[in-house]
Structures are given as C-alpha cells and as structure tokens.
Amino acid sequence: MNKDKDAIIKVRNLKKYFPVKKGFLKRKVQYVKAVDDISFDIKKGETFGLVGESGCGKTTTGRTIIRLYDVTDGDVIFDGTNISNMKEKDLSSFRKRVQMIFQDPFASLNSRMTVGDIVGEPLDIHKLASGKERQERIYYLLKTVGLSKEHASRYPHEFSGGQRQRIGIARALAVDPDFIICDEPISALDVSIQAQVVNMLEDLQKELGLTYLFIAHDLSMVRHISDRIAVMYLGKIVEVAKSEELYKNPTHPYTKALLSAIPIPDPDVTHKRESVTLEGEVPSPINPPKGCTFRTRCKYAFETCKNKEPSMKNLGGDHTVACHLLDNKK
C-alpha cells in the first residue's frame, strides 16, 4: 500500500456531534451532527480543499482534526499515530507539527499582546528559543510573511486585515509545522488582499514543503489553490476529486449547483451561462433528512434517495461521489 504511506493524515469515519442540552438538569436530548462519518486522506505536500456552505461542518472538521474539539467517533491518524483519543498533555508533539490559520483576522489575534509576543508565544510554549535567539526568530518569521521587525512592538489593532492574517500565518509557522489547516483564511479579506495571502501560502508550501487542508466556501479560490477538493454537505462528504476534474466533470447535483452559483467576473459569460439555482436552504443538522441528506433540495431526487444513504463510489482517477443517480444510470 504505497498510497497509504504518502498520506500525512488519514481521517476515518470521523464523527463530531454536539449535544443539545435542555432543561434544568441539562440533559442531552439531541445532537447536532456537525460532522457525520467522513473519511479522507491528505497526501504529503498537497493542498486538500474542503468546500461547502456555512453549517455544513467544514470548520468543525478542521477543528476536530486539530483536536480543538474532542472526537465523538472515528480516527484521525497523523503520520502513523492515532491522535483522536490522545489526552491534551500527550498532544504536545502533535501541536508542534500541525497548525491552524483562522478565519477572522480581527478575532484570531490577542489584542493585548504585541505582534512580537503573539508570534513568539509558540516558541515560549514549546521552549524552542529564548532571549536573543527568540528575538531573531520572531524577526525572521515576520520577514517571511512580508512584515518588518519594526512591526514586532506594535499591537494587532494597528494592522489591516491582510496584515493581521499574515501575522496569523507567522504564528502558525513559528513551530515549523508540517501540516497547516487553513480555516477560511481569506474569506474576510478584500479581493486584492486575498491574492496576496493565497500567493504567500503557495510560496510557503513550496519553500517549506507544507501540507494544507484548505477550508473555504469560495470554490473559485479553493480550486485555484487545491490539488484535490472534497465537497461537504450537511456533515457528509458528497464528492471528492482532483480540482480540475471536479470543475470539468462535477457529478453530484450539489457540486453542480455550487459551481453554477459562483459569479464569474465576465459579463458575456455570466449572461449566457445557464445556471442551476439551488432552491431552499440547508436543513437543520439536528434532524438531517433520512437517506441522502441532499434530497430535499435535489431536483433529481427519487424514491431510493429517501430510504438509503448513498455510499461513496469511485469513478476512477481519485474521483469519488456519493449519489444514487450513479446506480440509476447503470
């Protein structure tokens, strides 16, 4: 199994349920099935995109993999070690190798700390450097993300959104990680700044051999940066494919709808293209529809979709889809 060896992280049947507590005694009466049985591999050095609408569980997936949340069920195997049930104190070496870049550049930096201290905190925690060496390392990290050492003594609120996001990247790079989870790192930024950050992430990947899990709702950016993309809907992965393949040959009705909803900055193209507007909204993840979760918004839905949950089928060339329509065609 050569393919497995290459995978830096393997996610197997991962589930994350959030209990909904009610009443005086706070009894757990229901569960929000934020992530419901998903599996995927990410190979060393690749960028794996994860897209879906808000509430589909893509952010929860990222946070569960990095163990900000406890795993309800399933396995997360990072570089051969199953970290899904590890205690926090045993995760130290994992935390040195896996980092995260957050969505909100305004909330993800502690506003009472200087930029230098924010970037230097991982060094303190893991005792990687101190004194002059720490200072040098902070300056080096700031330079890596295009900031200067004068910025180290400033506070986050003095920076623009794009600059803050770069500070967040510098913090993530401080421990010299192998794998970075990018949780919608550009969705809060202006268009002209988005490209700066995306280019920086691409350059860093080349230089440092990083692996990314790139979470976003913006399919056009995800396609640009990712090698492979997984499309999530209501806690489940409905389609995984190489990014070119996913765009050229979208198979799941949801992927098709998602692609056609993306505005194209070209008036002639956008006026001529036929679009599949997706009606309605995402159902509640507390009571997801039985069978295929997408059937309530799918115009091709038929009887089987109501009763049976579709399983992932390989279409060849790393393209897998979970949809009953595939059986039907045969």
Binding site: S160, G162, Q163, V191, S192, I193, Q194, A195, Q196, V198, N199, E202, L219, S220, M221, R223, H224, E244, Y247, K248, L259, I262, I264, P265, D266, V269
Partner: peptide, 25 residues
Amino acid sequence: MGLLKSIPRLDLGEKKRLIPITGTP
C-alpha cells in the same frame, strides 16, 4: 486591471499564479 488580475477564474481551465495588488490601501 489589478482587481481583474487578482481573482481566479473558475471558468477558464488555466491555473496561473494570481497577480495580487501589493501593499495596503
């Protein structure tokens, strides 16, 4: 022009490097 260059085009098959507008407003 800078704005047009900095957005990836989903409909075009190419996957070129984006050309960002450098600096901040």
